[in-house]
Simulated assay, not measured.
Amino acid sequence: MQDRAEETRKAVLLAAAHLFFERGYVATSISDISERSGRTSGAIYFHYTNKEHLALAVVKAHFATWPAMVARHEAAAEPALEKLVGLSFAVARAFRDDVLVRAGARLWAERKSIDVEMPPPFVDWIATVERMLTQARADGDLAPGADPSRDAPTLVAAFFGLHTLSDALDDRLLIEDRLTDLWLLLLPGLQAEPAPRTLLATVGAPAAADVSG
């Protein structure tokens, strides 16, 4: 019985994520989600109470994607800057390929239309980036002019700004190429011994046109 209930919750959540991402919050109804999921409206209300709480569940699922991903990269044996760049590409692919992540991002952007309090974004990302930059400094890999507490918010802003641009211009299809170009711009100011292309090749980033470094 419990397995069936969990299966229903997951089916409804995934169907809602697809519809919220494709149509947005306002244009998606419970009856749409019922039709997409193959579950009754009653079952949906039983598990999620209302559309607002279902949207919140999708956003929370979006946020729940990140801790394990961050932990996996932080536990790796690579230098901290390499971990940071590798993590950025893993996050970029999730925003491109994972419908729960994409739906959560759209719902958060539409939060003023949703009568429920959303979890705050960016704060954990800033802390993660600052932690990785601090480790890079301790290892002697961070440029003397770089400052973890100052630069972490700027890096997070640049990363998510890049996603906004890529979403608008190419539906994130070119996000990895655009992210490569961003790191080619930023890494010379972060690395103690700048070699951005070498680092990007190590993490498997798409090759950039500029072959220097």
Rank of each mutant, 00 (worst) to 15 (best):
R93M: 06
A138P: 04
R72V: 11
R102W: 06
D97L: 10
M69C: 07
A92S: 14
E117D: 15
F46P: 03
A103W: 09
L87R: 09
K51S: 04
A143E: 02
V116F: 07
A57Y: 03
A127K: 14
M132I: 02
V70P: 03
R96D: 12
A43T: 15
F63Y: 11
T65N: 08
V58Q: 07
K51G: 06
M118K: 13
A90L: 15
D115P: 10
M118W: 14
D115L: 12
R96G: 14
A55P: 15
A71V: 09
D98F: 08
E130L: 02
R106F: 03
V99I: 15
Y48L: 08
Y48V: 09
R137Q: 14
Q135M: 01
N50W: 00
A143K: 01
V129D: 13
A75Y: 10
L107N: 12
L87W: 13
R93S: 10
V123S: 12
V91W: 09
P120I: 13
V70I: 11
V58C: 09
L142G: 02
K83N: 06
R137M: 08
D97W: 03
L87T: 06
I114P: 14
V70L: 07
I44Y: 05
R137G: 03
A55S: 10
A94D: 13
H62S: 02
L133K: 05
A103H: 13
R111Y: 12
L107G: 12
H53V: 01
W125I: 04
R102V: 03
H47Y: 09
F122S: 12
A76V: 03
I126F: 12
P148K: 00
A94G: 14
V85I: 05
K83D: 14
D97I: 04
L142A: 01
V99F: 10
K112N: 13
P79W: 00
G140W: 00
P120Y: 07
W125P: 02
W108L: 13
F89H: 11
W125R: 04
K60W: 02
R137V: 03
V123A: 14
E74K: 10
Y45K: 04
Y48W: 08
P148M: 00
